[in-house]
Design a protein around this nucleic acid. Structure first.
Lengths: 343, 343
DNA sequence: GTGAAAGCGCTAACAT
DNA sequence: ATGTTAGCGCTTTCAC
């Protein structure tokens, strides 16, 4: 069980076991069928004695298979992404893959750099939570014939496999639910739409619900989550527009939700008496704030699981099928923040 | 700018440019000093025409340098870890390194597997947020002479570079602060200590502060964050033990804090009137719950930054210096949850 | 200034 | 059942 400094190779094992490199390689790859028990034993002993470990790099180069999946996320510090990454990496492990990870900070240029860099590293597949302003670049990747799965954020028209939540439907359902609770005005607060698929879909669903289902005018506020003052202004604005009617805020994602709650807290507004609030992302603290925050729970871990399933299916089965969009169900968790108080 | 399917190699570029592979390689590595301008131009053109990208795998194999850093975290879905990972990956990028990541779920066996697997992939360094029950295994890695940095969780005695927060001192300071606010009983709630360095240090600091500074008996509750009922029982227990005195809970980390807040919420206890609470990890929602939760803010991103600095210094400078422990300062953010209400 | 050739550690025809 | 040999794509002596 000695530990060697410079690395032990298959040749060392072969020499020690008195067989050829080929036989050792066969042994390592589990091709025991035509190998004497004796050889197997000798090789096993040699491996243990030398504390041999295969060089993954050499193997990858030879096979052009790195057993690596690349993950590129817009912001790994958001709970959605970190749980997504957990889902991906847990599942990759099951298939014997490791994961390379990169964080783009929603920067298009970084996204491109990282994608190329990962391809240079010969990842076998790429799971991308795209910044959304990179469609052309992504489309150029198509001929490279490397499986690419978009996580959470689709691009239009669909050119890649995509795993996301059914946010269109759940946005509509939520708006309808809010009306059924007695709210007369629903203000939609979102980060700047840019070209981010998820933001586009949710916004459109909100508009559609307002017009087709509730017959009210959509009120959309694009906020910068880093400019607290402006956020307060928009909230005040929305409240004034709603005069004496019951009003509720719909937050387009968890980050927006947090920003709004912070502002509401500073403004000393009471939830839901002064203003109702709900929105995407049921993060662990949602139940603890005020009367509990009504939230749409997204299965981020499962999005990760499906991404990996999809990539494996591309890798091992139908490499050339039509791109698929997989939509996972969300769940509306109703809490006090949307229970109208009438007194 | 054609896009080729099968990959273009240095040989293709050489052929197209009418030079040798050697010259192309020199060009790629910026060794222009003894190369004709003409060759440079021809090579550059060939690279663009063929859309050549170097094969990182081959390069790594040849140089035994993968330009890869491995990160192994106990739970990537916790905010502490995900921000840590962000800090690490952002900084690795600066040095031209990419990161491999793995999530152990606090499972010793997985930790071992991943570490070995990453070494097989020839990562140049490893940043480990160890499960804490793996000291012997880790120590065996020492002779391999691959830089290993422990993030957040130290092992004893110090055998590896470690980057952590100054949690010993900040725990003591916090306990003293609580006393200064008028609290007479401080209950310490932690996950099972196991052999996790951070948990040991904080618990000891708490005990030390109680005994040496406040002259009160430490009250330590080890809770299972997945067993809500038991948590309620312990809280009730602590409250009863404190009879009519002002009492406050100290949560050993953010996960414990969340669990306790959930229980307190279910039990309809008022913060801080029925019970004060504070603890480690100032997560974004801390200001929004009840009167605001007093919390110790840890610089997780900077822990990541320091880990990378340290690993680079090992890689490029003093490979064989004594292991260092770097402690980053925390900050106590005082909010309403520890402001005693006397009426 | 440039190139030929060896080799990083591994696998897979193709022998035998 | 096992070994010989030729690469995977790259870098680097060493020679010219």
């Amino acid at each position: 069980m000695e530990i060697k400094k410079s690395s032990v190779t298959i040749a060392d094992v072969a020499a020690k076991a008195g067989v050829s490199k080929t036989t050792v390689s066969r042994y390592l790859n589990g091709k025991y069928e035509f190998m004497s028990e004796n050889s197997q034993k000798k090789i096993q002993t040699a491996i243990e004695d030398l504390n041999y470990r295969p060089n993954h790099l050499a193997r990858s180069l030879r096979l052009s298979k790195s057993k690596l999946i690349g993950i590129i996320v817009a912001d790994i510090s958001s709970p959605f992404s970190s749980i997504l990454v957990k889902g991906i990496s847990d599942n990759c492990k099951k298939y014997g893959y490791n994961v390379l990870i990169a964080n783009t900070d929603n920067d298009t240029h970084k996204e491109q750099e990282y994608i190329l860099s990962m391809i240079d590293q010969r990842v076998e597949g790429l799971i991308i939570n795209t910044t959304g302003s990179n469609d052309d670049f992504l489309l150029q990747l198509l001929p490279k014939n490397i499986p690419i799965i978009l996580a959470d954020r689709p691009i239009f028209p669909t050119a890649f496999d995509t795993v996301k939540t059914n946010d269109h439907q759940s946005t509509i359902d939520t708006v309808v639910y809010l009306a059924s609770e007695g709210f007369k005005k629903v203000g939609y607060f979102t980060e700047p739409i840019k070209n981010i698929g998820t933001r586009i879909i949710r916004k459109q669903a909100y508009q559609q619900a307002c017009i087709e289902k509730l017959n009210i005018t959509p009120q959309i506020y694009e906020i910068d989550v880093n400019a607290d003052i402006c956020v307060e202004k928009y909230i005040r604005n929305f409240i004034e527009s709603a005069a004496e009617e019951p009003r509720v805020i719909f937050a387009a994602n968890g980050v927006v939700m947090l920003t709004l709650l912070r502002a509401i807290n500073r403004m000393n507004l009471r939830i839901p008496r002064d203003i109702g609030i709900c929105g995407f992302d049921d993060w662990p603290w949602a139940a603890l704030i005020g009367p509990g925050i009504t939230a749409i729970s997204q299965p981020s871990y499962e999005v990760g699981t499906e991404c990996v399933k999809q990539i494996m299916s591309r890798l091992h089965r139908n490499r050339k099928a039509e791109p698929q969009v997989i939509k996972l169900p969300t769940k509306l968790i109703v809490r006090g923040s949307t229970k109208l108080i009438t007194d």
